[in-house]
């Protein structure tokens, strides 16, 4: 019996690990995280039934971004800028080559 993969997509795993790591290094407490995450899920679940896959981790990501912005660990503008830098890096990197934001 082959177990199901723990994570459906690599970014789910990255996001999960990032959150666990930040909790363990004391950036936030887990009960605080669970309360915030629960609130995001509830709000998003009002619009449509969440299936527990991508939409679940999108809610997770939104919660983490908001938490880290609120605590001053990062800023919304910096996140948007870095996201754009990564996008540009993927678009300019030839297929099959490692993608890096250091041009």
């Amino acid at each position: 019996m082959r177990p199901e993969p723990a994570f459906e997509a690599p970014w789910h795993a990255q996001l999960f690990a990032l959150t666990v790591h930040l909790n363990e290094t004391g950036v936030f407490a887990w009960p605080d995280w669970a309360t915030r995450f629960g609130a995001t899920l509830k709000r998003r679940g009002l619009e449509k039934d969440l299936n527990g896959g991508d939409d679940y981790f999108e809610a997770w990501l939104e919660t983490l971004e908001a938490l880290l912005t609120e605590t001053g660990a990062t800023e919304a503008a910096a996140l948007a800028e870095m996201r754009a830098a990564w996008k540009a890096a993927y678009l300019r990197t030839p297929h099959g080559q490692p993608v890096t934001i250091k041009a």
Binding site: P10, E58, Y90
Partner: peptide
């Protein structure tokens, strides 16, 4: 060019990069 990951994946990478630069995240621990 490389296959562009979905938007949330780019946002996760952005978070990870910024926090790593600030010394809040250790890639090996992830």
């Amino acid at each position: 060019h490389s296959l562009l990951p979905p938007d949330p994946a780019l946002r996760v990478k952005a978070l990870e990069t910024i926090l790593t630069q600030k010394g809040l995240v250790d890639a090996a621990a992830l």
